[in-house]
Design a protein around this nucleic acid. Structure first.
Length: 419
RNA sequence: GGAGAGAUGGCCGAGAGGCUGAAGGCACCGGUUUGCUAAACCGGCAUACGUGGAAACGCGUAUCGAGGGUUCGAAUCCCUCUCUCUCCGCCA
């Protein structure tokens, strides 16, 4: 597996700007793979011999003869086997640990290099410039929609209380997004646990590399999900999906929990970076040949929500070095928040190719009856609430300080304006 | 939380230390036959890894919930864990 794609792997790491750091690791993986195969051959040869000897023991015993010599021989083989098995287990443990630390290889259309090579591929709407627009935390506090102080009091910094129409706004966003994705985009709606086990976190590649970013339960086995991507994708862990069911599209609302360790001081004000937030997530399981097109489709589904909310946005193709660990191709959706004068990332739509499918062992059975193959998985936020709310409050702020409610939200919110 | 029962191939279900990768049935695929949306009969039908081969496929190893142990040899015996079911308790 490693050895067949070793060149692609190297150039992939190069494009991420990570080859220097990983070159020695890749060399080690190649060595381990070689030694793994040698050990397997050695141990299986001995196992074959032991099986043959044991058979003879059985035959002799049934014939009422002694088989002491054969039993001695077999025991000696057994000791060798035990030793080689231990050796093999160590090799495989180290190899798989390395494999879990290697990021996905990005696709051809993804530019090499870091953030500076990110590219806006299209945009929609017109950002509001100048004007005297308050930042969302001022609007939210003034209108009594968001209570930052009490959020901090009851839970800590980075936890938010939405109140009155603010609370209803959250509920409205959830309903609008789920309704659009299920009735217009063909997603199946799910409601999933927000606590998942270690296997699930490993399946979607949050573990082992990003454990310190996660909230773990006291038992060390349960984790609060950082995104509904984890439970949704792991729904089909260790399963084989009939090809006829592809593409399979799932959506779910969930709260998301992130420790944001190491992000201290960045975007700490307001709703831009919080420890618990709400999000509607989109996940697709697709045939490998289609995943490129499917990413465009999924990105469009997320964009649709921004259009309905009448928020200007741009679609950014991330360069290799800025693309997430598990992703092969990512579009970020950024909406402009004029109060803070920033483009806010409200969705990240990714094609993971077979990276998660391999870890989570998610396959599909081809319709022609062939062997099961790994699916490709994709996901994207559709969308994350807090930054949408920030942009919504700021972009739709009126001269009189109130906030206009976009048409699509009015029936959900039961109001045409906030304030 | 307490007590008990269980986990075998896509499904049902035998098996109780060697002859079991695993009987039998169902489902599925191929074929034969019968004058008609079906039956009968014959055959096929797991996965992973390693190895040989251009390939068809061959050979080897492993897999009976997971991991360990006993043994020359484990689906079968022992230990630990996970999950499911039943009863009791508790509870939104």
């Amino acid at each position: 597996m490693v050895r067949e794609h070793i060149d692609a792997l190297r150039s992939g790491m190069q494009r991420r700007g990570a080859l220097d750091a990983l070159s020695a690791t890749i060399d080690r993986a190649v060595d381990l793979d070689k030694s793994r195969r040698e050990t397997i051959q050695a141990v299986e040869e001995r196992k074959a011999a032991r099986n043959a000897v044991s058979q003879q023991v059985g035959q002799r015993k049934r014939a009422g003869e002694s088989a002491d010599d054969l039993q001695r021989q077999s025991r000696a083989l057994g000791e060798e086997i035990a030793r080689l098995d231990r050796e093999l287990a160590e090799t495989e443990a180290e190899l798989s640990a390395i494999m879990l630390e290697l990021p996905n290889v990005t696709l051809e259309q993804v530019p090499a290099g870091g953030e500076e090579n990110n590219a806006v591929v299209r945009s929609w709407g017109t950002p509001r410039q100048g004007a005297r627009i308050e930042p969302h935390w001022e609007i939210g506090a003034r209108l009594g929609l968001i209570d930052f102080e009490r959020g901090a009091k009851i839970s800590g910094s980075g936890f938010i209380v939405f109140r009155r129409e603010g609370a209803r706004l959250v509920r409205s966003l959830m309903n609008l997004m789920l309704d659009v994705h299920t009735s217009q985009h063909g997603y199946e709606e799910e409601w999933v646990p927000v606590v998942v086990n270690r296997a699930s976190m490993t399946g979607t590649a949050q573990l082992p590399k990003f454990e310190e970013d996660m909230y773990a339960l006291r038992d060390g086995e349960g984790f609060l999900i950082p995104t509904a991507e984890v439970p949704l994708t792991n729904l089909y862990r260790d399963e084989i999906i009939p090809e006829g069911e592809l593409p399979k599209a799932l959506t779910a609302y969930s709260p998301c929990f992130r420790r944001e360790a190491g992000a201290a001081g960045k975007d700490t004000r307001g709703l831009l970076r919080v420890h618990e937030f709400d999000k509607v997530e989109l996940v697709r399981f697709v045939a490998p040949e289609t995943s490129g097109d499917q990413l465009e489709l999924l990105t469009g589904h997320a964009e649709k929500i921004l259009q309905l909310l009448e928020l200007p946005y741009r679609v950014v193709r991330l360069a290799s070095g800025d693309t997430g660990f598990a992703s092969a191709h990512t579009y970020d959706l950024e909406t402009f928040a004029p109060g803070v004068a920033k483009w806010l990332e409200v969705s990240s739509c990714s094609n993971f190719t077979d990276f998660q499918a391999r870890r989570a062992n998610i396959r599909y059975k081809p319709a022609d009856g062939g062997k099961p193959r790994f699916v490709h998985t994709l996901n994207g936020s559709g969308l994350a609430f807090p930054r949408v709310i920030a942009s919504l409050l700021e972009h739709h702020q009126q001269e009189d300080g109130s906030v206009r409610v976009p048409d699509a939200l009015r029936t959900y919110l039961g109001a045409e304006r906030l304030g």
